[in-house]
């Protein structure tokens, strides 16, 4: 999925997949921080967002 989106010119970091067990609250927090940082670095989504006109 991510591969084809990247192929189409959408930044890879806009899609994330992860695997967290229900006992891993700290991992959850780490992953949220990581993703949040990456997406902030990318800025707002412009590629696939629908602009109603």
């Amino acid at each position: 999925m991510g591969n084809l989106l990247e192929h189409m010119g959408v930044e890879k970091d806009r899609i994330h997949f992860s695997w967290i067990s229900s006992a891993e609250a700290t991992k959850f927090v780490d992953v949220v921080k990581e993703i949040s940082d990456k997406v902030r670095a990318l800025g707002p989504n412009t590629k696939l967002k629908k602009i109603y006109s």
Binding site: S18, S21, S22, A23, A25, V29, V32
Partner: peptide
């Protein structure tokens, strides 16, 4: 059963994470 549980646990444990999600 997995990450939603983890999110719940993070909340119960009062861990802080970005409010972007």
């Amino acid at each position: 059963w997995c990450s939603y549980g983890a999110a719940d646990l993070a909340g119960v444990s009062r861990l802080e994470y970005p409010a972007d999600i």
